[in-house]
Design a protein around this nucleic acid. Structure first.
Length: 207
DNA sequence: TTGTGATCATCT
DNA sequence: AGATGATCACAA
């Protein structure tokens, strides 16, 4: 796919491209899934279950820097106290990722945005250690009933942010006293600084 | 309704 | 500009 455009892939899978992504935020990822034959749909499985590979598009600006954070997974808030890093969704999701860079300058028409060379990646021991540290801190808050005190400011590379269909969405959670509360659904996200480091380590960037 | 695909919109 | 919090579409 390297060098192919969004328009090329849309043509190959018989999809129409909208004018912009405002009402099609996941379009690039869904185009990739269709083109590559990812089979997991919206189930809580890797995109390629037989290969244990997660597929992630990575929107870059003209200098090769990620323009957005990367959604990793939703958070089972009520169960967080019982989860360990080793068996966490974050670790599973990030254990093997096919990153697909894609041009994402807002000024560049969708059909003309090009894909870069994909990268099959697994975290290095250092990266895994850093992610585990963040996860431990963030999961710790949630497990101790502090989910409402968690903002996107916490976490060096991994962060917790709202992840919902709309502002009224709520999930079961527990406060510090163990009493049930209705909390905003949250997800784990990778900060751009983390994906930027991946890009810098594995690609020769334009200057 | 929930999880997956993410980017948008707004504030600092 | 960069980051956080909010939001949009679709499948099951």
């Amino acid at each position: 796919m390297a060098g192919a455009t969004l328009g090329d892939l849309a043509g190959a899978v018989g999809a129409e491209l909208p004018r912009d992504l405002r009402r099609a935020k996941g379009l690039v990822g869904q185009l990739l899934e269709a083109y590559l034959g990812a089979s997991a749909g919206s189930r809580a499985l890797p995109d390629f279950p037989e290969l244990a590979i997660e597929l992630k598009s990575l929107p870059l600006d003209r200098s090769g820097k990620p323009l957005e954070s990367t959604f990793v997974c939703s958070i089972p808030i009520a169960d967080m106290a019982a989860v360990e890093w080793t068996s966490s969704r974050v670790r599973r999701k990030l254990s093997r990722v096919l990153w697909v860079p894609v041009e994402a300058e807002p000024a560049l028409a969708l059909a003309q945005r090009r894909f870069g060379q994909a990268l099959l990646w697994s975290p290095s021991p250092e990266e895994e250690q850093a992610l585990a540290e963040d996860w431990l801190e963030l999961a710790g808050y949630i497990g101790r009933g502090q989910v409402e005190a968690l903002t996107g400011h916490r976490g060096r590379f991994l962060q917790v942010r709202p992840k919902a269909a709309h502002g009224r969405a709520r999930r079961l959670a527990f406060d510090a006293d163990g009493a049930p509360i209705a909390a905003m659904p949250r997800g784990f996200y990778l900060r751009p600084s983390f994906t930027r480091a991946i890009i810098e380590r594995h690609y020769a960037l334009p200057r």
